[in-house]
Design a protein around this nucleic acid. Structure first.
Length: 658
RNA sequence: GCCUGGGUAGCUCAACGGUAGAGCGUCCGCCUUGUAAGCGGUUGAUAGGGGUUCGACUCCCCUCCUGGGCUCCA
């Protein structure tokens, strides 16, 4: 055998992957869950052929966890079938951080939350029984016979027989078109599966069932809706605990929760799903974000425009939105007989009309039109989510009209601008994603697409960031680059998109007069940097766990007089800070200091200044920095004012603290 | 949209076919406080609309709102 490090290892004929692991070491043998032979993941029980390149897959690797999760899903199916005789089981793949399995229960029964505990207990019984996973292969006919009363399995087998790719996708069935593979657990259970699986259920056990959900068979809303159970599984108790802790952490940072706690925004039932109102504190943060964005846009050569929220249908007919986006739009208002008005889901057609309002010269290009444009989209009721998926939002939207020669440079400028802006808001870990032409449902000439894609790719590469391909993920009218940012706990968020568009300029008959005195078609670049202001605010809330950097914090400083005879000095301190442009409050001495300190911490105020006898006498303050362990006493007021001015001016982002 | 779980005071949660409670918050007193919850009082709720019932927060129907999910992009 050839090992990953190139070393050779001789084993007796007929040796299995497990024997190799044992030969390499007892610890490895214990940690092994599968093997990779010549690039293919297989069971440990697989016989090795002479000269094979073998890698032992351990439970603590990505591949290993994948196997663990798949096997755990399999055990779950066995448990469900034991508890609900006659249940039909569909697919149960591993997914990021876990697994699921879909079932159809007898009599149309549904899982309830309480069922999770029963399934869990049954799974642990199976695992304790140390059932081996035994692989078998059989013909299509045998498979169909074996799963005679399992319609979903039969459908997968038929898919394999037909050479369909989707069975492969589901990870459910093996190999070629003539045979399928099965795994048996003792005599108790058999499942169609490509594998590999752990050798025995005793390798499993660090799992947690998480929730029940409905899911359509094959994700198709026209097909039966199945009952899905989600779970997570890990190689050790510690890894499981760590994962559960990450989930708790994400929950603690949830912007919907912090939005209420910090009094930033709410979603009044009276207004409707996915429509937010911003309270004074959230409004303040939002205004600071928008003001800073405007400042940067102005400095970067954008011109500010305003456009209405509604329009006659003709505009969206001309743009084509009504042809391909109508289901995402709010229904029209009927006016003046048969005149239909729409609330806008996008700003681009309006900006185009500004461009088209008169003849344009090449000397005017690039023309960069910017607007905080409020748009409304009719998202399905089941998908609205906090501020990240809403029905009404404000995009920091701009459209750049330029020549084809200019587009490469413009895209680079946009990306640079974008990354700088995001960094100022404290995000610094990015990668780019390039989405190319969708195979179907797209318009335009191949050479245009190629040129546009090449321009985007070149600009993306110039940024020196990781570039991930998203084949076929572009819009119907052009390819796009999106900036993905990782937050403080490692989640990625899609931020901005930059899209190249040859289609709308054509649809709207846009032109400019070139140096040659001839008419030419401009290119449009669509770009939103925050994406939407609402969503970006949500990302910041979660990234900082509500601890906004001082420059964005609604209240930057709160002054706490120790007794009420320190009130006058507290007012002086507050006045000095306000004069320096800080947002400052005084929390009067009606309550014990400890209570006021606690409230300040809970409200995540960056600085709490305690002033007492010593401070009045010396002109100092006691500084409690948010997240700090202990207060810093006797800081001269002037020094603190300066320090804070510097922090705000630099927009320094704190280490995102808990 | 579909499946599923929910909606009780500003927030977090109780209760139950028979008077809807608590903590925090609000507001008012008292306390005068040096670093994560002083004391007392006060205010305040069954999402909306129908139905069943002597009686509905509770059971049924509709609407609205909401959590999770609807082939993971390891």
């Amino acid at each position: 055998m050839v090992l990953p490090d190139g070393a050779h290892r001789a084993l007796p004929a007929g040796a299995r992957a497990a024997d190799l692991a044992a030969a390499l070491g007892a610890r490895l043998a214990k940690a092994a869950v599968a093997a990779e032979v010549d690039g293919v993941l297989v069971d440990l029980s697989t016989e090795l052929s002479d000269g094979a390149r073998v890698r032992i897959v351990t439970a603590d690797s990505e591949d290993g966890r994948h196997v663990l999760r798949h096997s755990t899903a399999h055990v779950m199916a066995q448990a469900v079938c034991a508890l609900w005789p006659g249940a039909r089981y569909a697919i149960g793949p591993p997914i990021a951080d876990g697994f699921y399995y879909d079932f159809e229960l007898p009599g149309g029964e549904h899982f309830r939350d309480e069922d999770l505990a029963r399934i869990d207990a049954e799974m642990r019984r199976i695992i304790a029984a140390r059932q081996p996973f035994t692989r078998e292969e059989c013909s299509i006919e045998q498979g169909l016979a074996l799963f005679a009363d399992q319609p979903f399995k039969r459908e997968i087998i038929e898919g394999v027989a037909a050479g369909a790719g989707d069975a492969e996708l589901a990870g459910e069935a093996g190999g070629d078109r003539a045979t399928v593979s099965l795994y048996r657990n003792a005599d108790a259970f058999v499942d169609l599966c490509r594998g590999p699986h752990v050798p025995s259920t005793d390798r499993l056990g660090h799992f947690r069932l998480q929730r029940v959900a409905g899911a359509y068979w094959r994700g198709d809303e026209h097909r039966p809706q199945l009952q899905r159970v989600y779970g997570t599984a890990w190689e050790s108790a510690a890894a499981l605990a760590e994962h559960l802790h990450r989930l708790e952490e994400a929950e603690r940072r949830d912007h919907r929760r912090l939005g209420i706690e910090l009094d930033l925004f709410s979603f009044p039932d009276e207004i409707g799903s996915g429509l937010a109102v911003f309270h004074p504190k959230g409004g303040l943060v939002r205004r600071l974000m928008e003001d800073y964005s405007r400042e940067r846009h102005a400095a970067s050569g954008y011109e500010f425009v305003y456009t209405p929220h509604v329009t006659k249908s003709a505009l969206f007919e001309e743009s084509g939105h009504l042809d391909w986006y109508a289901e995402g739009m709010f229904p029209p208002m009927e006016l003046d007989g048969d005149q239909r008005y729409y609330v806008k889901p996008m700003n681009c057609p309006f900006h185009i009309l500004i461009y088209r309002s008169r003849q344009r010269s090449y000397r005017e290009l690039p023309m960069r039109l910017f607007e905080f444009g409020s748009v409304y989209r009719y998202e399905l009721s089941g998908v609205v989510h906090g501020l990240t998926r809403v029905r009404g939002m404000t995009q920091d939207d701009a459209h750049i009209f330029c020549t084809r020669e200019q587009m490469g440079v413009e895209i680079e400028r946009v990306l640079e601008f974008e990354l700088g802006l995001l960094r100022d808001f404290g995000l610094s870990d990015f990668y780019l994603e390039l989405s190319t032409r969708p195979p179907e449902k797209s318009v335009g000439e191949d050479d245009e697409w190629d040129e546009a894609t090449a321009a985007l790719e070149a600009a993306a590469k110039a940024m020196g960031l990781d570039l991930v391909l998203d084949p076929g993920g572009g819009a119907f009218y052009g390819p796009k680059i999106s900036v993905q940012a990782r937050d403080a706990i490692g989640r990625t968020w899609q931020m901005s998109t930059v899209q190249l568009d040859f289609q709308l300029p054509r649809r709207f008959g846009l032109s400019y007069v070139g140096a040659d005195n001839g008419r030419h078609r401009p290119v449009m670049i669509h770009r939103a940097l925050f994406g939407s202001v609402e969503r970006f605010l949500a990302v910041l809330v979660e990234h900082y766990a509500g601890n906004f950097p001082t420059w964005l914090a609604p209240v930057q400083v709160r002054v706490l007089p120790v007794r009420d005879d320190h009130e006058a000095y507290a007012a002086e301190v507050a006045a000095a800070l306000a004069a320096a442009g800080r947002r400052v409050e005084v929390d009067h001495a009606n309550e014990p200091l400890g209570a006021r300190v606690r409230r300040g911490r809970v409200e995540k105020v960056p600085y709490l200044l305690v002033v007492g006898d010593a401070d009045v006498a010396a002109g100092t303050v006691g500084v409690n920095a948010r997240g700090g362990e202990r207060p810093e006493r006797d800081v001269a007021l002037g020094v603190f004012v300066e320090r804070l001015a510097d922090e705000v001016a630099r927009r320094s982002a704190p280490e995102p603290v808990a």
